[in-house]
Write a protein that binds this DNA or RNA. Structure first.
Lengths: 161, 161
DNA sequence: TCAATTTAGTTAGCTTGCTAAACGAATCCA
DNA sequence: TGGATTCGTTTAGCAAGCTAACTAAATTGA
């Protein structure tokens, strides 16, 4: 059991996290909309771009899901819509006939360049109210909570239900 | 213009925020599922419970949306589902024939009690990896970013596009 | 007073997350 | 070799957010 005022500190911090999450979506959504994409779609495009820099020619849907922490059906949907507008293509993998490799088209690569050109500035707009030391402190606290939550989730998967 | 490594600090902090929110949803979703509700539904139930403590007999959908930072159609949907399972009721407001007052049913009030009985413990499970001082520090940093984002959004509404 | 505007709520239709279930391809192992 | 199982993806269907467009009620103001 934990003292009541410690619980209150945890609870207000928790609530602020939830609130900030909502605010962040509301700020980022119109920013990405200027490029005709959503935040989730940007996640996919950026991930594919990073994979290119690593020398990979394409990523399987499963790999995308792993990197973005979303499940296969969600990946299928986002890729469907990105493919429909020609930012991305699906090709069958030569090594595994079950798998498909997703990669950026020329148009997709160009869009990533456009976003990256102003992305640092946008993030600065969001976090500019903290100086670099405070940003670093925030990053460290968030990382610790993140690692903690990952271990909670790993435990659950292992069948501790 | 901002130095390159300051941008990198901001970016990794930003990315950690996004990642943490995804993890948080994955941890909280099964927790609420045990009570047969979703996180959004809990947001509504808790808000209605708070309103009762303030002496209000019901909240208008608009007020709920304001408190939860979601738009009217989203509120309509959540209330529809909560009403369907009998946790909440809609009554016409006597003062304004356009408005409807949402309030907890007995069943809803009972469920809120059940959740609240273990809620502090669950939040402790999430934030217990930080001591109270660190939690307080995290809260302060998040609050500052939250206030900053609110002012960004307020500016945009005022027509600075 | 009464027409115009604003406000409260809903509906329709989109995206994006989820789970459950289907499917074929790949792999394992007896 | 052949049957069982696992893997990668898709489909179906639900929840929850959004915008745009609508109805009905309230308010404003000329």
């Amino acid at each position: 059991m934990v003292p009541a005022n410690a619980t209150r500190t945890a609870e207000k911090t928790f609530r602020e996290m939830i609130r900030l999450f909502g605010l962040l979506e509301k700020v980022m959504q119109p920013y990405f909309a200027r490029f005709g994409i959503s935040g989730s779609q940007w996640g996919v495009l950026r991930t594919l771009h990073r994979a290119e820099l690593e020398g990979l020619t394409g990523l399987r849907l499963t790999d995308l899901g792993d990197r973005l922490l979303i499940r296969p059906p969600s990946v299928t949907g986002i890729i469907d819509r990105l493919e429909r507008v020609g930012l991305v293509v699906r090709d069958g993998s030569p090594e595994d006939l079950r798998a498909k490799l997703v990669s950026l088209t020329g148009k997709g690569r160009q869009l990533v360049g456009q976003v990256l050109a102003v992305h640092g500035e946008q993030i600065e707009r969001v976090l500019g109210c903290l100086n670099p030391i405070e940003q670093e402190r925030l990053h460290r606290l968030l990382s610790r909570v993140g690692l903690h939550l990952e271990s909670l989730l790993a435990g659950r998967e292992a069948g501790e239900d």
